[in-house]
């Protein structure tokens, strides 16, 4: 669904290279968590996938199209919710009436249900909403568009506690075999029960891409007992926590600790496969 080949990118007029020879293949059917430190290029990767920016070198294919051509056939199957957004002076129903027609599978019933669940006032102008409300409105609209690719940049920023729970719930239900959802966030705790796969970006390339199921089958994430030899550890108060390879016969964890995984990955504990 998304394929990059030796992709390099730097913003025109800037010296800093964001990606260097990045090769990546992302398949549908999963909810991916895209993790990385500030300024590492998570949002840029989204923009390259969506066709807002053009690779400096190498190539990228989204749904078989070169994204920068911004072919309408590709654009109707991709939706990006950016971190910052300025919205027009219309309410979400007017917005959906104007923009929804461009998406062939746009579902009004789905939108109305999601707006109710996420507690978005349908008659308030988007431009007058708080960031959290705007995000919720756009999440509802994006999900109602039913595009094959959904890219979300920090979607839980600005969301209150109950909205985060609803967000996880509605997103989990929208997973489909032909659909790809990528969520970029620093708030990893929000994603732990939601994502199926992890992509970690660090120092211009991808250092880890794996499914949560596979990671749990091979590693333990959590407290480390005395005498164990973890591949990565840190102190959480008085307790030693870390990542430990599982030995044959060890019981698998039921939940991944994304924070530990991320710290372990950027410390170089995982070789990129």
């Amino acid at each position: 669904m998304i394929q990059t080949n030796a992709l390099s990118f730097r913003y025109p007029g800037h010296r800093k290279t964001i990606f260097s020879s990045l090769t990546l293949s992302i398949t549908p059917g999963y909810i991916y968590g895209l993790l990385g430190q500030n300024g590492v290029g998570k949002s840029t990767l989204f923009r390259l996938i969506a066709g807002i920016n053009k690779p400096s070198e190498g190539s990228i294919q989204t749904l078989g199209y070169t994204p920068f051509d911004r072919n309408p056939e590709m654009l109707r199957e991709i939706f990006l919710i950016p971190e910052d957004m300025t919205m027009p002076h219309v309410n979400i129903l007017q917005y959906a009436n104007l923009y929804g027609t461009f998406y062939p599978r746009f579902d009004w019933n789905e939108l109305e249900q999601l707006l109710k669940k996420l507690d978005v006032p349908p008659d308030q102008k988007l431009s007058t909403m708080s960031l959290g409300q705007r995000k919720k409105a756009m999440i509802a609209f994006a999900l109602a568009c039913q595009t094959k690719i959904l890219l979300m940049d920090e979607p839980t920023n600005g969301l209150d506690i109950s909205s985060k729970r609803v967000f996880r719930d509605v997103l989990y239900r929208t997973r489909a075999d032909d659909r790809l959802i990528i969520i970029s966030t620093h708030q990893v705790r929000d994603l732990e029960q939601l994502i199926h796969a992890v992509i970690i970006v660090h120092e211009k390339s991808i250092i880890l891409k794996d499914t949560v199921q596979n990671l749990l089958a091979h590693y333990h994430f959590g407290p480390i007992s005395h005498g164990e030899n973890p591949m990565y550890f840190e102190m959480a108060g008085d307790q030693k926590v870390g990542v430990l390879p599982l030995a044959p016969g060890d019981k698998e964890d039921t939940q991944i600790d994304l924070e530990l995984l991320f710290n372990a990955a950027i410390s170089g504990a995982f070789p990129y496969a």
Partner: peptide, 21 residues
């Protein structure tokens, strides 16, 4: 001009219509 702003340009750029349109 909103088309050139980072916060608002994405709506127009990613709207499923051709660049010619």
């Amino acid at each position: 001009k909103a088309y050139n702003r980072r916060e608002s340009g994405w709506i127009a750029m990613l709207l499923p219509a051709s660049r010619l349109e």
